[in-house]
Design a protein around this nucleic acid. Sequence first.
DNA 1: CAGTGGTCTAGACCACATT
DNA 2: ATGTGGTCTAGACCACTGT
Lengths: 255, 255
Amino acid sequence: MSITDLKFEIDRNSKTPMWLQIRNELFNCLYLDELRPGQLIPNEKTLVELFNVSIGTIRKAIGVLEKEGILIRKQGLGTFVFQHDNNSFLFEYFHFALNGSEEKKAPNVELISFTTKKANKSESKALKIPEGSNVYHIYNKLGLNKKFYIVDKIVISHDKFPSLTEEMFRNRTNTIYNLYQNKFNIFITNCSEKIKAISSNERISNLLNLELNSPILKIDRIGHTYHNEIIELRTSYVHTSDIEYIQSQNSMFGE
Amino acid sequence: MSITDLKFEIDRNSKTPMWLQIRNELFNCLYLDELRPGQLIPNEKTLVELFNVSIGTIRKAIGVLEKEGILIRKQGLGTFVFQHDNNSFLFEYFHFALNGSEEKKAPNVELISFTTKKANKSESKALKIPEGSNVYHIYNKLGLNKKFYIVDKIVISHDKFPSLTEEMFRNRTNTIYNLYQNKFNIFITNCSEKIKAISSNERISNLLNLELNSPILKIDRIGHTYHNEIIELRTSYVHTSDIEYIQSQNSMFGE
DNA sequence: CAGTGGTCTAGACCACATT
DNA sequence: ATGTGGTCTAGACCACTGT
């Protein structure tokens, strides 16, 4: 089932603008079609005929979807469902750099463990899955310049990644979110983080070669899809003597 | 000198689109005019005549400036230079909430000290002012629910805030950034932050009623204007047993 | 009511990428 | 050469705001 096979009914007298109706129709199609990253959508002229509106209205609708990060327009080529390319994805959600450095470098990553467990109460609540259903627990060490500074614990639902194996994880050629995207069609688009300062326990101290009770960051991240479906819980423990968490913020957002 | 008195020359054959030229011209005018927040800009029809282009082109230029957070359009009223209203500004750059709470509450603030010093080497470098020129050092305690969790150290250049006094600071009716905006026409629009975990020293421990060497966050924030002029250095020391740093991030930004 | 920005039209021409 | 999105026009009409 392709978009071009569908028939669309736009209400020209609705209180919601036509461009917004069209945006929503397109969004729905892409969602039903599982939002395959990299997928080409019909060109503007085709959409004009499908929706029977003027090209400016189509452009406005696509423009909004582009601002939302769902579509990307490429002049001369067409409009595509957005996908993180192999370079950009690396740094989208990696917030660390060496002290005083403004530019992020790709971290080196080492898998510590990969296990399947029954979700405990807080995990099942956070992931919105039944208590006792299967989850993966994945631990990674991350470093810069050959030294390790970060321990990541990842918790994801088995049901959302049924065929995931340790080998797939270990042998991935790219970031973890890229793996989710390319192998499971699951697309993490926004994350919320909560940061605390805590004292390192024995396990973290050993993994990061730290004194016991060193001050470290504990970062709880929740990764969502477009539709705010919660996909991943990630907790990072970070030794920040040589590196720091960096972040930049503008005062304003679009409409 | 008002915008409408100026004469604009748009190069119709330039490689840069007309809407971008217009955006830049408008931006410049607003900048020269000191970007008075809340200021009304000429209506679209007037701009059409000033720039001698079609209204769609004007709208595109204004749309970009709106996306950048510089202008805000109000249907039926006009287009204005954006200003943080008294509510929104409160939470723009305040990143803390009580554990597990998703919504931020306004913190209570208490001035600890307000002094003038000579800028040391790192301050002068960071603020891009001569070493030894005057800076204000301002310390605040911030809390939630009547308990204090945060100590803020603010460093700003005396030259940028020549008439600032402790009384102005203490008697402000709004946020600090609002004070900068309303009394000094200085408009902080973006901030970069660097976060580390450290152990509390004696001074911070006393101020926050903490054990010595408790793990705390140290957050170095640099506040910039539109033009990336550095205005303020702020270092926050945060006790995070009851509160946490919260942040949300989308994968994508506009064009 | 008059004035503002918001939506929409039905094109034209340009810049870019692929074949 | 063909097809794509990007820019731009010159309007029309609607929805909202304050008087």
